[in-house]
């Protein structure tokens, strides 16, 4: 720790403000008591689908395809998750199955 307590408190408050700005801004710009412009409504309808795809990639951003393991544990883990989900459509089963399989892969196979 190189800061005084007050400096770290101010830093944390700034991070809170920055984070809350990103969460509240759309609601401040387009308040509920006024009709939302059609373009923004359109974005509200289609963005969730793009954003979840983006989040999947965001989770995988640290994976290297050019150094050892070559992304194989991640690819196999996702493959099993997808197969389980297409088979049973049970969120808990698919998530737990994929995660345990991935843990076994990185701890026992791709060490």
């Amino acid at each position: 720790m190189s800061m005084t307590v007050w400096q770290s408190v101010i830093t944390i408050i700034m991070v809170v403000l920055g984070t809350m700005l990103t969460r509240f801004l759309p609601f401040l710009l387009f308040p509920a008591n006024k009709p939302t412009p059609p373009y923004i409504q359109y974005l509200g309808k289609v963005l969730p689908f793009s954003v979840i795809g983006m989040l999947v990639i965001y989770c995988l951003k640290g994976v290297s395809l050019t150094s050892y393991a070559y992304g194989l544990p991640e690819a196999l883990g996702i493959l099993l998750t997808v197969l389980l989900h297409c088979w049973k459509r049970n969120m808990l089963l698919s998530v737990a199955g994929g995660t345990i399989f991935y843990m076994l892969l990185v701890q026992l196979v791709f060490v």
Binding site: L21, T22, F30, I40, L47, M54, L55
Partner: peptide, 26 residues
């Protein structure tokens, strides 16, 4: 200690929340 930098960085790292907000307006 660089409070303004902290604020900017928080906005950049969390910019994806803007998309969430637009998605959740309705």
């Amino acid at each position: 200690f660089a409070p303004f930098h902290a604020l900017l960085l928080a906005v950049m790292v969390n910019a994806r929340h803007l998309f969430y907000g637009i998605s959740m307006l309705e």
